[in-house]
């Protein structure tokens, strides 16, 4: 986005720099008083999130920045979305569909939520089906939603077995070759990847994005 006005550039900068108060005040003014095209404002948010994602990848930003960025995006989105009128322009094309959930027996979701957020701001269509997800639910969701990637999350060591069972059920249902499976969570490593039969694992949200990009043939 090179064709930005000074004000637009300012919004992107404040969002990317975690200057929440100023960024939200400016976004509200642009949307509610100046009646700017809400699609344009959301586009600016996405540009800011690109910078946030880059800073995270480069080790300048960490989880707190991702969480705050997610919250700012949500606040602006909640104001902007009801203002979108027909003809304001469509949403950017998504790179692919990622179904994500925490496997059965495990109730943890902080990591999963951050991965969902990072995939979303990187242009993937994400469907998060929550925690403690039974094998059957994964299969039903896959059948109806047809994802390109399935992400299994788990924090406890019991998740090793749940992930293995879930992936084995994909095999039995004859759907295993229709999508890629990535796993992640506090205790996940290469040993667990091999044990469960997943295609890959990631230690953080950036790795999850990189995996999906690679599988979908999207340039970084």
């Amino acid at each position: 986005m090179n064709d930005m006005t000074d004000e637009e550039r300012q919004l992107v900068e404040w969002l990317a720099d975690m200057n929440e108060d100023d960024a939200l005040a400016l976004a509200k003014r642009m949307l509610l008083e100046d009646k700017k095209n809400p699609m344009r404002v959301l586009e600016l948010c996405r540009a800011a999130m690109d910078i946030v994602g880059k800073r995270f990848e480069e080790g300048e930003y960490f989880l707190p920045e991702l969480v705050l960025a997610g919250e700012m995006l949500e606040t602006i989105g909640a104001i902007a979305k009801p203002l979108i009128k027909l003809g304001d322009g469509g949403e950017a094309k998504k790179h692919g569909k990622v179904l994500i959930g925490t496997v059965h027996g495990d109730l943890h979701d902080i990591g999963k939520n951050i991965v969902s957020f990072m995939l979303d701001i990187n242009g993937f269509e994400v469907k998060d089906i929550g925690v403690d997800v039974p094998v059957r639910t994964f299969i039903d969701e896959i059948n109806t939603w047809q994802p390109d990637v399935v992400g299994l999350s788990g924090f406890l060591t019991l998740a090793f077995e749940s992930m293995k069972e879930t992936i084995a059920a994909f095999e039995s249902a004859g759907m295993r070759d229709k999508f890629k499976v990535m796993i992640g969570g506090g205790q996940i490593d290469d040993t667990v990847k091999n044990y469960t039969g997943a295609d890959a694992f990631g230690v953080n949200a950036v790795e999850a994005v990189a995996l999906c990009r690679r599988w979908m043939g999207v340039a970084a």
Binding site: T157, F160, Q187, I188, D189, T191, V192, Y195
Partner: peptide, 9 residues
């Protein structure tokens, strides 16, 4: 000792 090693090794 790693949890994955102890549980699956």
């Amino acid at each position: 000792l790693s949890p994955s090693l102890l549980t699956t090794g």
